[in-house]
Amino acid sequence: MVSAPPITVERLTKRFGAVTAVDDLTFTVEPGRVTGFLGPNGSGKTTTLRMVTGLARPTAGRALVGGRPYADHPHPARLVGTSLEAAFHPGRSALNHLRVYAPQVGVDDRRCHELLELVGLAPYAKRRVGGFSLGMRQRLGLATALLGDPQVVILDEPANGLDPQGIVWMRSLLRAFAAEGRTVLVSSHVLGEVQHTVDDVVVIARGRLVHASPLGDLTRLAEPETFVRAADAGRLDALVAERGWHAEGEAGGVLLRGVTADEVGAGAFAAGVELRQLTDRVVDLENVFLRLTADQEVPR
């Protein structure tokens, strides 16, 4: 297994005039894991990634790959594969697009063909990119990023425009990269999109860090929800009132917010209430994400 370099972002700040797009941001992206970089539209994800890859200069702070700024690596595109906004010359064929960047990445035409094969664009190799669909462009952008078989992979909203099969494929590709020990950073404005792919999450809002942890820890921030149905609804209502639980009527039973199934079960048992159903609702991470990113004063 290779040991890929981490990405470290230290007190990174970027201002555009009066707009502070990225504000004192610090986080680390570890090798061997997929890190989801999450935030609503305009929260500063792309701007951060542009600073990590040397396309934009930080107003303050720094972003390093393997301890060095991106541009200080002798062949940065061999180490770091990046796909930001997919941009192409419309008059160039898909194959030629890759061939244009191949010399500096240090790969030959065979590798270009290989990548078109990998992303499913081999049949369109000779076609000019101007006629490509959004998903095809996204795939070609990914192929460009992966030309040099990079140890670090940085993708900005890679699922945009991909069909469901494409998303599943992308997911397994990223998982495989992490399993090989590479450093993988993917941004998204929808947590649900990457929930099944990422090991770690870095959540930002208005340019500031609001949460960074393994995905599992985010789950713990979620409010538990328990659906319960009793043989005697009246006795259940009495129990709910006694305990001061927050309840909502729902199809034949009640939905309790902020209480785990364990607590409800124990309470019912102690009160002698016969339960017909006791269900732990799947935690809705999207809600956690919304709460995290909507708060005016952010919790740390």
């Binding site: 040397g54 396309l55 991106y70 541009a71 930001l84 941009a87 500096q104």
Partner: peptide, 18 residues
């Protein structure tokens, strides 16, 4: 100017930051 017009300048600078 084509690099700016089609925004390929980003990819160009990614492979050649100098």
């Amino acid at each position: 100017t084509a690099e700016h017009r089609h925004r390929t300048i980003e990819q160009t600078l990614l492979v050649e930051p100098n």
